[in-house]
Computed example of a mutant assay.
Amino acid sequence: MEKVAVLGLGKVGTLAAELLDGAGFRVTGIDMQLKSQSMPFDIKALDLSDVSILAEEFRQMDAVLSCLPYHLNTAIAEIAHGAGIHYFDLTEDVPTTKAIMKLATTSKGIMAPQCGLAPGFIGIVGASLINQFDTCRSCKMRVGALPQNPTGLMGYSFNWSPEGVVNEYLNDCEVLEDGEIKRLSSMEWIEKLYINGTELEAFTTSGGLGTMCETYLGQVPNIDYKTMRYPGHAQLMNFFFHELLMRDRRKEAGEILVNAKPPVDDDIVYVHVSAEGKKDGALARSEFVREYKPVNLLGKRRTAIAWTTASSVVAIMEMVRDGKLQNSGFLKQEEIPLDMFLQTKAGKAFEDQKP
């Protein structure tokens, strides 16, 4: 796995391509429209909706990383499958992932969606905590990508794809509760928690667990994922989507929200993962709690959401290339060892900011 195509050169895609280049991959960045700045890797402007063009391009590659909106990824994965190359993406969309799982049953390369922050890194951390116990009764995973200095009642800025945020706020969620896989609505099960004295609220959102419910069915009775926001956010978003019926106008909802709350440079990513169970017959609790802020990486200042997402997927691609993970079929995030992840060139960024 040497030649990699990176599709979508936004903040995350560009940084992922730069990190891959720095890790020794031969990178080609592809987007519909190219910005004027120079890149340390090859770039091409291609019509990403043209199957024949992408199929030809993929035949020259060993792997593809899609940093495109989730609704484009099934088609991209099908082209990669047809070309017999490895496929990676950052999607949180459950139907997209299920479609890719089906492709993986006959794939020559690895099919690895959900390689970002959540799903992705959060599942790797969750699995590492579960493995610390002889028997684990619960695992709770929480992630929040937020402005450091929030303003307004919503206390938010759209540093991530508005399409992805709307998708995870409205689609149903999977959880493990009392040993059963259950589906429930997003923006429910609201709870209060604190990280280094900052009060946050957490509520259910779609897709963050990836494949963990099916993996741990019969082993861990209670697993759930929630998004963290500043207090009051969930009530306002429920009003916006459900009382004003913006749930029926998803595209317009995303446009309204990002226009009202544009991205900020001073963001922060909160991670709070906890697990409870028995060790040597005694009940115990383990936690992984972090604050990740913007960093200077490869000579540029990177937002927290950009570097955590890009570093996660690049670390996984390094591990596949180096023979530390499987190289065909479907890759589950919870099968990736955390210690091995943190030893990769990209994964070390997470260790650099540990408390």
Rank of each mutant, 00 (worst) to 15 (best):
T309D: 08
K324Y: 09
A304H: 05
V289C: 12
D322R: 07
L283T: 02
L325S: 12
Y292T: 02
A282I: 08
A282Q: 10
L283E: 09
E287P: 00
V313R: 15
E318Q: 15
S312V: 09
G329V: 04
A284W: 00
Y292P: 05
T303H: 06
L298D: 05
E318N: 13
V289L: 08
K332G: 01
G323V: 12
R285Y: 00
L297C: 05
V313Q: 12
K293T: 12
D322V: 06
M319F: 12
V289T: 15
T309G: 09
V295L: 00
S286P: 00
F288S: 13
R301M: 07
L297I: 02
K324C: 03
A304I: 07
S286E: 14
L297Q: 11
A304G: 03
V320N: 13
K300G: 10
R301P: 00
M319I: 08
S328A: 07
E287F: 03
T308V: 03
L297G: 04
S286T: 06
P294L: 02
L283P: 01
V289R: 11
T309M: 02
I305S: 10
F288Y: 15
E318K: 11
M319P: 03
D322C: 07
T308D: 06
R321A: 14
T303N: 09
V320Y: 07
L297H: 09
Q326H: 06
A310T: 15
